[in-house]
Write a protein that binds this DNA or RNA. Structure first.
Length: 561
RNA sequence: UGGGGGAUGGUCUAAUGGUAAGGCAGCGGACUCUGACUCCGCUUAUCAAGGUUCGAGCCCUUGUCCCCCAGCCA
């Protein structure tokens, strides 16, 4: 077996080096890896890291990466998850070998290996209760005690194991244990359970099996059976590596995959464990696994994140062995980068205030021309109807603007993007509320399209939508799901108490340029000055699209204020 | 107080005995029909103390702090 010790923390290079060495020495012809999710929940951004790593290194070395479901605990698993996981991996842009693999496909072989273990005197059936077993296991500082059932004869073990398999014994009464060392300083080696009785319906094998193998026993053998060369997993399995190796060594298997560990992903302002995500879904704290606020792959997809942005994110954070918490801003930067080049621009007013162009003819509709992308003429252009009454963003007008404010205000001239230069005339205010209800402007007919023939410049360009031709839309603005950087930092506070009440804001009076009516669900556009918005692929009302905000634009005005 | 890991700016990653580099964040500036994008500039780091060496983030010694492990979960 491999005895090489890890050194240093540069896991990716470490992994690459090991693989390169193994290939060069002829130990392996190509590298075969696997991505082994348990189908007990949806995949999240943390899995994406593992997916990119496993599929990535296989690709780099002309090998393949298997998709294998680690479905050894039927009580937690479901076919719905199996389906969703496959979709998510595909969507991320990866493909596995000829077929999807399942640990449950190996149940017969795994059983044979267990019998072999018993025959070699390396496993025994134990009747200690769970409580007793915990007692016998010892503690972190004290060695365990040997089970009174440890030295049964091979024949008796074989017979009992057969009875377990046949369903003749009750759940919790008997388990099969590896006979290793109850005094091992590594508690994982203190005669770990390798099979338990579970009379649950399995989503693939039905009621065939009454006993199910444990992870530690299953994983190494599954890897071996598939000819996996490098088995990449997260840090918490480091203590399990001796057991992984013990099973393969004891069984003298024809090949022996090498387990290498790396740190799992943590992000600020979110939680990552499936257990917690499940709690949020079941407790209806979110609308489902694909709620756009969730950092699940399907949530991110619905939110408008692209596969490329997630792959780039995984590349940029790297692989290491030290626990870290990546700033959410890194992920957000990746999606901005990607969407900036591919999303078409549109105008949409989220918080409208009416503007009347006093000197613009009533009833006239002019079709203005807007570039779909300011840096890429190949993306074409669209027309935008301009009318006497328009809406602009409420925050684009200020009664008493500071010198640094470049938008509309008393005595100011600004450009309506792709429209006209307009000058402030007056504004109307609701006496009772103090709210501005209407702004009157005059336009310069010589500035159609937005540029002045006399070459005069204006500092501000604002976006607008025709009041009469505009398309009402629903937009959902998302803030971070949690209000604190590390929702799990304080162990006395439940992470659910850290949920951010502002995490979802629905804007129903938004109005957008009419060209948005043609947008397909799932497509993303940039609402100029507002951010990137994805037409919700799940929810959409005919003629009144629902948009999820993917991410905001950076706004230096915000920081200058 | 057992075992296994880890520690480089605010954050993440690189530098394998030879000028501590890059991304994100931050700050300043240029440009701009998006206060976006783009471009330019700047601030900030080797856990500590010893040792080896011409030279140490890297090697050695001793500490400190952090994470994981006592499921019939994975």
């Amino acid at each position: 077996m491999e005895t090489t010790e890890d050194s240093g923390n540069k896991s990716l290079d470490f992994i690459r080096q090991i693989i390169a060495d193994d290939l060069q020495t002829g130990k392996h012809q190509k590298s075969i890896t696997r991505f082994p999710p348990e189908p007990n929940g949806f995949l999240h951004i943390g899995h994406a890291k593992s997916i990119c790593l496993n599929f990535g290194v296989a690709e780099e070395n002309g090998g393949i990466c298997n998709l294998r479901f680690d479905d050894t605990n039927p009580s937690k698993e479901d076919v719905a998850y199996v389906r969703a996981i496959q979709e998510d991996v595909k969507w991320l842009g990866f493909s596995w070998g000829d077929q999807v693999l399942y640990a449950s496909d190996y149940f017969p072989k795994l059983y044979e290996y267990a019998v072999e273990l018993i025959k070699r005197g390396k496993a025994y059936v134990c009747q200690l209760s769970p409580d007793e077993m915990r007692e016998y296991r010892g503690t972190l500082t004290e060695p365990g005690k040997e089970s009174p059932y440890r030295n049964r004869s091979i024949e008796e073990n074989l017979d009992l194991f057969e009875q377990m398999k046949a369903g003749q014994l009750a759940e919790g009464t008997h388990v099969l244990r590896a006979k290793i060392d109850m005094a091992s300083p590594n508690v994982n080696m203190r005669d770990p359970v390798i099979y338990r009785i579970l009379k649950a319906h399995h989503h693939r094998t039905g009621d065939t099996w009454k006993i199910y193998p444990m992870y530690d026993y299953t994983h190494c053998l599954s890897d071996m059976l598939e000819g996996i060369t490098h088995s990449l997993c997260t840090l918490e399995f480091q203590d399990h590596r001796p057991l992984y190796d013990w099973v393969l060594d004891t069984l003298e298997t024809p090949c022996h995959p090498r387990q290498i560990e790396f740190a799992r992903l943590n992000l600020t302002y979110t939680v990552m464990s499936k257990r917690k995500l499940l709690k949020m879904v079941e407790g209806k704290y979110v609308d489902g696994w694909d709620d756009p606020r969730m950092l699940t792959i399907s949530g991110l997809r619905r939110r408008g994140y692209t596969p490329a942005s997630i792959r780039n994110f995984c590349k940029t954070i790297g692989i290491g062995k030290s626990e870290s918490r990546i700033d959410m801003g890194v992920l957000e930067n990746e999606i901005r980068d990607d969407l900036n080049v591919r999303a078409e621009r549109r105008m949409c007013v989220l918080d409208p205030v009416k503007v009347v162009i006093d000197n613009y003819p009533e009833g006239l509709v002019e079709e203005m021309i807007g570039q779909n992308h300011p840096q890429n003429p190949e993306m074409g252009e669209r027309t935008i109807p301009f009318t006497r009454e328009l809406y602009i963003e409420r925050e684009d007008f200020m009664e008493n603007p500071s010198r640094k404010y470049h938008r509309l205000g008393p005595d100011r001239e600004v450009r309506l993007r792709y429209g006209y230069l307009v000058r402030y005339v007056s504004h109307v205010k609701d006496e009772a509320t103090g709210e501005i209800t209407e702004i009157h402007c005059s336009y310069d007919p010589d500035t159609k399209g937005g540029s002045a023939p006399d070459g005069r410049k204006v500092k501000g360009t604002i976006h607008w939508v025709s009041a009469e031709k505009g398309l009402p839309v629903t937009v959902r603005l998302y803030d971070r799901l949690f209000s604190v950087e590390d929702p799990e930092a304080d162990k006395d506070i439940d992470f659910l108490d850290q949920l951010n009440p502002q995490s979802k804001v629905v804007v129903s009076c938004a109005i957008a340029e009419p060209s948005l009516a043609k947008l397909q669900p799932g497509e993303t556009v940039q609402f100029e000055r507002q951010g990137y918005f994805c037409a919700d692929p799940v929810e959409s009302t005919a003629g009144n699209p629902v948009f999820n905000r993917t991410v905001t634009l950076r706004d230096s005005w915000e920081s200058k204020k």
